[in-house]
C-alpha cells in the first residue's frame, strides 16, 4: 500500500522537544496519536487528492496544460470567479454586521438568530437550488409579479450568484462570532471613552483584533464558493460556454470521457485552495507574535 509508505516518510522520530514531562504524554502515546491522525488524514484526504492529480497528469504535462486552452474551460473559470467575487464580499459585509450585532449587544432570541445563520450549512445543495427555482422559475412565485421585467435570474449568472451566496452564507459570520465573543467589548469601550466615533472604533480597534479570523473566513468562504456543485447545478441550465461554472464544466468533461481535462480543472480548484491556504500559513508564521498577542488580549 502506497499510503503506508507515505506515512512512514512523514512519521517523526523525535516528535517533541519539550522537556516538561508532567504535562506531556509518554512517547508511545505521542507516536500512536500522530500515526492515528496521519493515517486518518491519508485515507480520507491525501489519497483522494493524490488520485485527482494522478488522473490529471496521466497523459503528461502537455495534455494537462492543453486542458486550459479550451475556450469553454476558460469561460467556466471566468464565471466561477465572477460568482465568488460577488458572493464573498457580500457575505463578508454580512458576517461583520452579524458578528458585531451578536457579540457586542445582549438581546433575546440570540441563539435562534445564530442557529438561523447556521441553517444554510444543513440545507441540502439540492434544496438550495430548488428554492430559487420555486421563486424565480417560470412557474415560480416571482413570475406573476415581475414577469420578464425581472430579467433572467434562473439559468443565468444572477441565479448562479444567488445559489453561491446561499451556500457560503454562514462561513464568515461563523468564523467571527466566537472570536469577537471571546474578546468582549473592553477595547472598544476604551476607544469610545477617549472620544472615537463608532466607525473609528470599528476600523482602528475591532478590525485589527479580528483580521486573522476575517482572513480565515474569507478563504474558507472563497474555497466553498468556487467549489460548489449541487446548488449551482440546479440553477445553471448547463449552457456550454455561458452558464457552466468550473465544477459543472468538470462534470461535463468527465461525462465526455475527457478524463484528463476533467481532473486537470479539478486540480486547478484544489491548487487554488492550497495556494490561499499556503498564503494563510505564511502570514500566520510571519506574524505569529502578533497573532498570539491578539489571542491573548481577548482570552
Amino acid at each position: 500500500m502506497n499510503h503506508a509508505v507515505k506515512d512512514a516518510a512523514f512519521l517523526p522520530f523525535e516528535p517533541l522537544k519539550q522537556t516538561n514531562s508532567v504535562i506531556n504524554e509518554p512517547r508511545l502515546v505521542r507516536w500512536l496519536l500522530i500515526a492515528a491522525a496521519l493515517g486518518f488524514l491519508s485515507l480520507f484526504l491525501l489519497l483522494p487528492l493524490l488520485s485527482v492529480f494522478v488522473e490529471a497528469l496521466r497523459k503528461g504535462a502537455g495534455a494537462y496544460f492543453a486542458a486550459f486552452s479550451d475556450p469553454e474551460t476558460l469561460a467556466s473559470i471566468k464565471l466561477t470567479f465572477i460568482a465568488a467575487a460577488i458572493a464573498v464580499p457580500l457575505n463578508l459585509i454580512f458576517g461583520l454586521c452579524a458578528a458585531w450585532a451578536i457579540t457586542k449587544f445582549e438581546f433575546r432570541g440570540k441563539q435562534l438568530l445564530i442557529t438561523m445563520i447556521d441553517l444554510p450549512f444543513s440545507v441540502s445543495p439540492v434544496v438550495a437550488g430548488l428554492i430559487f427555482v420555486l421563486i424565480f422559475g417560470a412557474q415560480g412565485w416571482a413570475q406573476p409579479w415581475f414577469g420578464d421585467h425581472l430579467g433572467k435570474v434562473l439559468f443565468a449568472t444572477p441565479g448562479i450568484v444567488l445559489a453561491t451566496i446561499f451556500v457560503t452564507f454562514p462561513f464568515i459570520a461563523r468564523e467571527l462570532i466566537p472570536l469577537m465573543q471571546e474578546q468582549g467589548t473592553e477595547d472598544e469601550q476604551a476607544a469610545l471613552s477617549l472620544g472615537a466615533t463608532g466607525w473609528q472604533t470599528f476600523t482602528r480597534v475591532t478590525l485589527p483584533n479580528i483580521k486573522w479570523a476575517l482572513l480565515y473566513g474569507v478563504l474558507l468562504c472563497n474555497a466553498r464558493a468556487t467549489g460548489e456543485f449541487g446548488a449551482v447545478s440546479v440553477v445553471s441550465g448547463h449552457i456550454r460556454g455561458l452558464t457552466n461554472t468550473m465544477p459543472l464544466h468538470i462534470e461535463i468533461l468527465y461525462n465526455e470521457y475527457q478524463f484528463v481535462s476533467a481532473f486537470a480543472v479539478a486540480s486547478l480548484l484544489a491548487l487554488l485552495a492550497m495556494v490561499t491556504l499556503a498564503v494563510k500559513s505564511l502570514l500566520e508564521w510571519r506574524y505569529a507574535d502578533q497573532l498570539a498577542a491578539t489571542h491573548r488580549s481577548g482570552g
Binding site: 488524514l41 484526504l45 478563504l219 466553498r224 485552495a273
Partner: peptide, 12 residues
C-alpha cells in the same frame, strides 16, 4: 490540506 473538502467540487 485540511480545508480541501470545501474547495474540491463535491462531484470530483
Amino acid at each position: 490540506f485540511i480545508d480541501l473538502p470545501f474547495a474540491l467540487p463535491t462531484a470530483v
